[in-house]
Amino acid sequence: MEPLAIADKIKEKFPDEVLGIKEFRGQVAVTMKKGRMLEISRYLHDEPELYFDYLIDVCGVDYLGKKDNRFEVVYHLYSIKHRHAIRIKAEVPENDSSIDSVMPVWVGANWHERECYDMYGVVFKGHPDFRRILMPEDWEGHPLRKDYPLKGPVKEWPGFLDVLDRAKRFREFEWHE
């Protein structure tokens, strides 16, 4: 199916959810409300004409100061059977930054969602193993947010201070007592 036809089909099915459809370089993005994301993804996966069995990627984008809803969670979908692709974007406001996890539909979303949380602080409801993935568990802040400084926070991470401290102690350590 042509990408625009797919977008129309989605709009037909969920007229209230679709906020906009945009085409650029032959790729179509459908912007959604975040509320019924799980339902939509189940539809996209199960509808035989669409059959998006392969979730390429889930990622977040931070539109700080550019859009009303600060975050967007972007899903790239592909159907290996029909060889067509679509991009679904769910808008997530900053004050209620939670969205349904699509793990019941695509297991592969597992680490992508964890990473999205790690990097942007978007919470995925219903994720079975929800914690940080790339950053240390006790890290403060979400590094890919636009207001996060490029060279890292001023405050050192406690884990690093701990390592420094231990290195200092071991320097004084006598190996043969």
Binding site: D57, C59, V61, D62, K66, V74, H76, G108, W111, H112
Partner: peptide
């Protein structure tokens, strides 16, 4: 995945890394 805002720098550069998924 690039999001461009019209400037010379990517607004968002996302790398969909195969190893990341394969490790999961």
């Amino acid at each position: 995945y690039f999001v461009s805002d019209g400037t010379g720098k990517p607004y968002r550069m996302r790398v969909r890394a195969p190893s990341f998924i394969h490790a999961s």
